[in-house]
């Protein structure tokens, strides 16, 4: 039998949870879990929980009865879990393990619709984000990518067949709804999983057409880089 959560423990629960939210939002670690606009809501919410706990500490002793402790569901203990997981496991941003199983951001396109894609900007190689590569490859056999050297950034993941991918996650709300964007790479040996890379590559014409599969690229240059602060798109 799990003990009821006493009032003083509840106060501790509020303080710890608030402090963890503040700690996350103070640095960059919240970016591993949620969108960047969540920073201020997290700070406000963390400060509020800490204040709620402090108010209780400074309240005169004895004016509180412990009667309603009995009614606090024992599930309240679980609120310690996220804080402990955050400190003990320090969950990283989603990586290669989830890339293999995440929902793909590649959405089949209706090729009958007229889409007029503007040409890629000037520059050689031209930096392009992965979602744009997927989009451009999906239409017109990737005509707007033809004969261009693309500079792509992402981390390394691989599928069961051993193909490796330049990968990035897109995030709408939080990491739970992350969708994976990736292009299959060939031409060089794969760096280890989860290693961030910047590659200069050419799109293989016709791959990724219609958005039914990942586009392929032939890598000409490979550079290992540090993971960016915000690893999601």
């Amino acid at each position: 039998m799990v003990a009821a959560v006493k009032r003083a423990t509840q106060t501790l629960l509020l303080a710890v949870t608030g402090a963890v939210l503040l700690r996350m939002a103070a640095g960059d670690s919240y970016l591993r879990y949620v969108n960047s606009w969540m920073r201020w809501p997290l700070i406000a919410c963390g400060a509020f929980l800490v204040a709620l706990a402090l108010l209780d500490v400074f309240r005169e002793q004895g004016s509180q009865d412990d009667e309603h402790d009995a009614h606090v569901p024992r599930a309240a203990w679980l609120l310690f879990a996220p804080s402990l997981v955050f400190f003990l496991i320090a969950p990283p941003a989603l990586g290669a393990h989830f890339a293999e199983r995440a929902q793909s951001a590649v959405v089949p396109v209706d090729t009958s619709t007229e889409v007029d894609l503007p040409p890629l900007p000037e520059g050689d190689p031209v930096p392009v984000v992965l979602d744009e590569v997927l989009l451009r490859a999906a239409y017109d056999d990737g005509a707007t990518l033809a004969d261009r050297r693309l500079e792509l950034t992402g981390f390394v993941s691989r599928d069961k067949a051993g193909t490796w991918f330049v990968t990035q996650f897109g995030m709408n709300c939080c990491a739970a709804d992350a969708t994976v964007m990736r292009v299959a790479a060939s031409g060089v040996d794969a760096p280890p999983d989860d290693q961030w890379v910047r590659v200069v590559a050419r799109h293989v014409s016709g791959t990724g057409d219609g958005g039914r599969e990942e586009p392929e690229v032939v890598v000409e240059q490979l550079e290992l880089i540090e993971a960016p602060k915000n690893q999601y798109r």
């Binding site: 939210l21 997981v85 496991i89 709300c173």
Partner: peptide, 23 residues
């Protein structure tokens, strides 16, 4: 372990996303 890391990332993400709305 990669699986545990993935689980804990998603777990913490859902909690962190929910708590401001819950408050």
């Amino acid at each position: 372990s990669p699986a545990l890391a993935t689980w804990s990332t998603i777990f913490v993400a859902i909690v962190v996303q929910s708590i401001p709305f819950l408050v």
